[in-house]
């Protein structure tokens, strides 16, 4: 690799040779290993800008936003997309309404055991499973 080619690539891809085209990396490392002055200067200049680029951070993914996106995934959309089909089956609607009414009557006729904690939370599993506090930059590095 010529020093000119090295300078051209450093000018485009920066100082980290891992970001360079794979086919050029071995020759570039060899030129650097030879302590070529132009190659070393090109790396130093590119490295300075790389450091500034690395200082640019973007907001981490908000956990609540991540949960909303996960909630929009197939299982939820499946029931939404099939809702009209189910609705056309009148007997299903009547059956569900009947069951729901029965459950309501039964629940109203019984005292609640231990307050709010007796009610299962549909959010517990999501909160436990989803690690949505990843910093955006962490995932990029």
């Amino acid at each position: 690799m010529t020093p000119e080619r090295f300078e051209h690539l450093a000018d485009a891809y920066g100082a980290d040779l891992r970001r360079w085209p794979a086919a050029e990396q071995v020759a570039a490392r060899a030129l650097l290993a030879s302590r070529n002055a132009r190659a070393l200067a090109a790396v130093a200049q590119a490295g300075h800008l790389d450091a500034l680029l690395d200082s640019h951070r973007v907001a981490a993914a908000d956990p609540a936003f991540a949960r909303r996106i996960a909630a929009s995934a197939p299982s939820a959309s499946f029931w939404r997309s099939h809702w009209n089909w189910w609705s056309r089956l009148g007997w299903v609607g009547v059956g569900v309404a009947g069951i729901a009414a029965g459950m309501l009557v039964a629940s109203l006729s019984l005292p609640l055991g231990s307050g709010a904690e007796a009610l299962p939370s549909i959010f517990d599993q999501n909160d436990a499973d989803i690690v949505f506090t990843l910093n955006a930059e962490d995932s990029e590095q």
Partner: peptide, 27 residues
């Protein structure tokens, strides 16, 4: 796994891709 409606896979996809998408679009 997402095609098989695995909830854990959905969460993993969000964790894997959401930061990348936000970084791309933010910049």
């Amino acid at each position: 796994r997402i095609g098989k409606n695995e909830p854990a896979a959905v969460n993993e996809m969000v964790s894997r891709k959401l930061p990348r998408l936000l970084a791309l679009a933010s910049r």
